[in-house]
Structure formats: C-alpha cells, structure tokens
C-alpha cells in the first residue's frame, strides 16, 4: 500500500507545479510528471506476486503471468502523451515568437 501512496505523492507534485509556476516550460514539465505517475499507477495494479512476463518462449512451460490487459491500455496512453507534449512545445515556441516572453502573467496582459 505504501507504493500506491508514493505514486499519488508524485502526482500531487505535478499538480503543485501546474498551479504555482509561472514559466511556460515548467508547466509543461509538471504535466509530464502527472502523466508518468498516472501510467505507473495503472501498472501497479497489474502486478501478481511471483508472476512472469506475459511473453511465451520456446520450450518453457506456461507459468503464472502478470495481468497483460492494463499493459495494453497503458501502451496506448504513452503514445498519446507524446502527441500532447509535442503540441504543447509547438504552442510555447509560437507564443514566444509573438509575445517575446515565457512568463504567463505577461502573456495575459499584452494584447495581440
């Protein structure tokens, strides 16, 4: 159970970063922390004590395996998070080109 609580603390560190930081790149980093912890939390559910990898090899008997279903779903999630990060970085570069700053308080005040 301690593992679940530590994973939740990692998620809360990410939430703290989104709420209080002013630099645009730091907000993107905090979002990345949140998505890593969410994926890890799903895989922590799927671990079976004494289980092996869900891959069969030649000549070995089938033993108890860990749950393969959350692994398939988290694979999808990891790929989508890369698309999100790429789009956020494109936003940041474009916003810098228009407003000449990375500070989000300044971006609110200037008008374009």
């Amino acid at each position: 159970m301690i593992v679940y609580i530590l994973c939740f603390i990692l998620f809360l560190v990410g939430v703290y970063g989104v709420l209080t930081k002013k630099d645009l790149i730091k907000i993107i980093l905090a979002l990345s922390i949140m998505e890593y912890s969410a994926n890890l939390f799903l895989i922590l559910f799927a671990y079976k004590s004494g289980g092996g990898m869900p891959i069969l090899s030649k000549g070995e008997k089938i033993q108890g395996m860990v749950d393969p279903l959350p692994q398939a779903l988290v694979l999808t999630s990891i790929v989508i998070e890369l698309g999100i990060t790429a789009m956020l970085v494109a936003f940041a570069i474009r916003l810098y080109q228009k407003y000449e700053t990375f500070d989000i308080t300044k971006i609110r005040r200037l008008s374009g």
Partner: peptide, 20 residues
C-alpha cells in the same frame, strides 16, 4: 513490474520528448 514491452516504449518516447 515484469512489463518489458512498456519499458521499451516508455524509454524511447521519453528520449523523444526530451529532444523536443
């Protein structure tokens, strides 16, 4: 946690995100 498929995917996409 015995998930080698996910370890490879996470490692590679993490490197790509760092480059961007």
């Amino acid at each position: 946690l015995q998930a080698p498929d996910l370890a490879i995917v996470q490692f590679l996409f993490e490197i790509f995100a760092l480059i961007i």
